[in-house]
Amino acid sequence: MRNILVVLLVLISFTGISQELNCKVIVNAQQTGNENFPIFKTLEKQLTEFVNKTTWTNQKFATQERIDCSMFINVVEYSGESFKATLQVQSSRPVYGSSYSSPIYNFNDKDFNFRYLEFQNLIYNPSQYESNLVSVLAFHVYMVLGLDADSFAEKGGDPHFKQAQIITNYSQQSNSIGWKLEDGLQSRFVLIDNILSPTFKEFRSVIYSYHRNGMDIMSENAKQGKEEIVSALSTFKEMNSRRPNSFLLRTFFDAKADELEQIFSDGPNVNIASLKETLQRIAPMHSTKWNNIKF
């Protein structure tokens, strides 16, 4: 009997560490005028279970290691099984030696149209198209996983980004918007293509250096951490000179602008003149925040 209990405890422990995400999914249907329809609550519940209970990798995550993220789905039109929506995906990663979580992914997917029948099974197949609903969510899950892994190890996100690219490739058959080059400069296709392109190689290097060499040492040496962040961001200048105002730079600063304003407006002094010049050059869309850095 005791041996059976031990086996059960082992199985339970493995079950408890097989899930990678701690994701809050919200479905907002206010714009449809039918936000109280049960189908929207059912959709929210099913998507929450789908994202959090699907096994996305072969890695083991302890409960405290799960990646915090959120998906806000704003349904703007609804007719039968057809939904027209936008999707805001955000994720963060913990900072060593603190209770602070650093934002790492903030993406507004404006072309999220899908079909959904209440209570339908949501199944993810890593090598086969199932539906645009599943593909879009899976794509962003792997973006979250990839960026998180990159922030802890150089090129740590490779397997996740490659899976996001596989999803992109097989989802092109659906003719849904966002999976092809011709779908615009801020599509899923462009995002993963740029992430994996040598043209934007500095992006992933900055993700690693900013977090591991900068944020993660600030609890022990705040000044050195800030200096490392300045050094990491300076490498963006070369990427920006190669491809000015790139989509990847916009996605990075959409996630990091508020954090940077806060970091460099408090704590030990570092030379911010060169930092502000760099930020104004590579991320002018956040110039108001950079002007607020006066510490």
Rank of each mutant, 00 (worst) to 15 (best):
F236C: 00
S70L: 07
R212W: 12
N74P: 04
Y96D: 08
V230E: 02
V7Q: 04
E202W: 00
R250H: 04
S287N: 01
R93Y: 11
W179I: 14
N58S: 15
M239N: 00
P126I: 02
F253N: 04
I217F: 09
D109L: 02
P244D: 12
D193P: 01
F236Y: 10
I195L: 12
N108I: 08
E154G: 08
S91I: 02
D183F: 14
L21M: 06
Q19E: 00
V51P: 09
Q30C: 09
G225N: 04
Q262D: 07
L147K: 12
F119W: 06
S176Q: 15
Y170T: 06
Y210S: 06
I293G: 05
V76W: 06
D68V: 06
E81N: 08
V75W: 07
N3T: 08
S13C: 15
S91F: 12
S241K: 13
Q172T: 14
Q186F: 00
L87P: 02
N58L: 14
S209V: 06
T278P: 09
A273M: 14
Q19R: 10
E77K: 12
H160Y: 15
Q64K: 15
E228K: 15
S70F: 01
F139W: 06
L196C: 03
S219K: 11
V27L: 10
K201T: 05
F161T: 11
S82K: 12
Q64C: 05
N240A: 01
F189D: 09
V136Y: 07
G16D: 00
K180N: 14
V141C: 13
E130I: 12
P159D: 12
S131P: 01
I166V: 15
K226R: 04
H286S: 04
N240S: 07
S135Q: 14
